[in-house]
Every structure is written in C-alpha cells, then in structure tokens.
Design a binder for these strands. Structure first.
Lengths: 180, 180
DNA sequence: CCTCAATATGCAATAAATTGCATAAAATTG
DNA sequence: CAATTTTATGCAATTTATTGCATATTGAGG
C-alpha cells in the first residue's frame, strides 16, 4: 500500500487539492507508480479520516470550493516510519510476456504487430526521459543536488526502457526468422 | 485480466489440478506474472462456471478427490481471441522508487541498506535465469525451437535484471557520495 | 514412532482497484 | 456565440487481490 505513502511524499513537499496531487503524481511518480484519479481521491478521503492529512476548504464565492490537503505531523511520522521499513520487492504483471509465452497459438504477424506497438510506446517514453535528463544536466548544480534522488528514479526509467528496446530487437529477430 | 488467459495458456499445454497449475504458474510465468494460490483457485472456479474449462473429479478411495481441469473448445477460442487483441502496456508499481523519490526524508544508511537487500534478490533472480538459459542452450535444437518463445520471456528477465543491477550501481555511487 | 515441514486444497472477510457514470465550471475553437 | 474539450471533482457498483484462517495428507528427520 505505497499509494498512501506516495501521496504523503508529494504532500510533504507541498500541499494541494486532489486534482493538483493527481497531476503531480502523474508527472513525478507516474512512471513507476500507477494510480487513477479515483484512487487518489479515495485515498485522500481515507487519509483525512485517519488524520494523516488535514483539509482546508477555501470557500470561493464564484467558483466551487477548493479543498486543499496538507500533511499533518502524524502523516509525516507515518511517512518516515514507512521509509525506515523495508519494502517488498515489487511484483510484476506483464501481459505482453504472457502473450509471448503462449505465442505458439497466435498469428506470428499479430505478435510482431503487438511488439511494434509496444516498441513505439517505449521509445516515446525513453525520449521523454532523455529530454528530462538533458534538462536536469542543464540546470544549476544546486538544483541538481536537490533533485539527485528523483533523478535516480529517472535513471531507472532510462535504463529500464533501453533494456526493453534491446530486448524487443531480440524478439523481432526471432519472430522474423520464424515466418519469413 | 490476463490471469485468466495465463491459466488458459497453461491448460492449453496440459490439463492439471489447481495445485499443479499453481506450481506451473510459478515456474513458468511467475517472473512476469504474479498470482497467489487463492487467485488461481478462485479463477479456476470462475472459469469453470463460464465453461472455459472443464472439470474431471477423480475419486480416490484413500486420498481426497483430485479435481483436474482441462481447457474446453470455448476456452481455447477465448484464449486465441485474447492473443489477437492488443494488450495494454503494463502498469508499473515500484515501491522502492517511491521510497527513493522521497529519500531526502530517510536516513541515507537505511536507503543504502534497502538497495543492498534488493540487489541481493535481483542478483539471485538473475543467476537463476542464467542457469535456465544455459540449460536451454545445452538442450537439443528441436527443443530449443519448441521453447523459442518462452525463451524470449526468459531473455526479458535477464536483460531486465541486468539493467536493474547496473542501475543499482549508479544508486550506490550517488548514495555513497551523499554521506561519506 | 512422533513431529514438523511441505503438499494440496479451499472459504470468508477485507481491502484495493477498476469501471462506469455524473456534475459543472473554464477554456478553446469553429 | 454555440459547441466541444479540458479541468476538476466525486459516487456507487463491480471486479480483483490480499489476508487470515482452516483442513487433511504425505514425506522426511530425529
């Protein structure tokens, strides 16, 4: 249940509304933690009821109310405690590999097309990451220091995507040879 | 919902009881699809009610009954249809990266220890994979041909683990420099 | 032979995630 | 300016997954 702690980490840096948090989640943790907007809204509600976060409703005469969440000292302790505990190695659920495993029953061309589709996505993701990496390297070294740990998560993304693409080349070679 | 199709793929190759399937699942798909024994038993029950698989109860006088599931033609069609459809690129939920992202709040030594723990696990996994790869290369070429696609999933595991370990080296370098 | 782990099932309760809406203001575009 | 998309929120139902038991057999070790 790290969704909770992921949100706490975001709130520790800065307070925000549900939507804010969703956006920040997507931008900063989205690559390595997936969460839908419902999950985030529901999680916020739950965390509020557990007093890990507090809620300030900014009444606005014209617009609908804005609910801004902040982390509480209790939430902060919860986060720090989580950080001190070991996390379980994460489980992988990769449907593409299931498909490849059972690939004998599929049309080879359909497998090839599927790999191509995924390759496009992975290449785009990699390009995005490389762009962020360039920005990072162009930023002042004080900022680089601040972002050193998030940068490591970016590196994970880059190395992971590169490995994926290298693997896809192997797959293509095998599939091409199977049905020439 | 590929758990269903993963199980169907296993049953397509050979019938089996819940426990059989669980074991085969672990051995063959376990690296890239995680499923607990409850999930598998429950899924089998559900698939049976949907007539995707059939059930033969072997009554045994001394031992408890053995329930053997086989794939039905309907199940086979379902599997093939799934194989023909595109699968969504899989979502990643990696708590370790969440932790690293929020790492400023943690003890650097605790982060290092955590990385070390995970490194051990990943190195072991890689070694297991490399062992299987050696077996594969030592097997007769007819068998290599049969296992070509499952072998590709193994390659994914190998490349993925190698990339992880290379990343862990980067992480160690940064963490060591942060608190000398 | 007794005990303890491993094999081989499975139920029930809970928690978490997904799906499918639903609303309504703000910004954009034709 | 009307129509559409994007922003911003959230409920309720369903599906999936996890947790915590609960049995009963088999095999191995002391």
């Amino acid at each position: 249940m790290s969704l909770k702690h992921a949100v706490l980490a975001l709130l520790e840096a800065e307070e925000g509304s549900g939507y804010d948090l969703m956006k920040r989640f997507q931008a900063r943790l989205g690559y390595f933690w997936n969460a839908s907007h419902q999950q985030i809204y529901q999680q916020l509600k739950k965390m509020h009821s557990e007093q890990l976060i507090s809620l300030a409703v900014e009444t606005q005469s014209d617009k609908p109310d804005r609910k801004v969440y902040s982390i509480t000292p209790k939430g902060c302790r919860d986060l720090q405690q989580w950080l001190a505990e070991p996390v379980k190695p994460n489980k992988i659920n990769d449907a593409l590999l299931v498909k490849l495993y059972a690939g004998e029953l599929a049309e080879p061309a359909s497998l090839q097309a599927e790999i191509a589709r995924h390759r496009t996505i992975h290449r785009q993701t990699l390009n995005t990451f490389l762009g962020i990496e360039r920005e990072y390297h162009a930023s002042p070294s004080a900022e680089q220091r601040t972002l050193q740990l998030p940068f490591l998560t970016l590196r994970r993304g880059i190395l992971g995507e590169q490995a994926w693409l290298a693997w896809a080349d192997e797959v293509d070679a095998v599939l091409a040879q199977r049905q020439p």
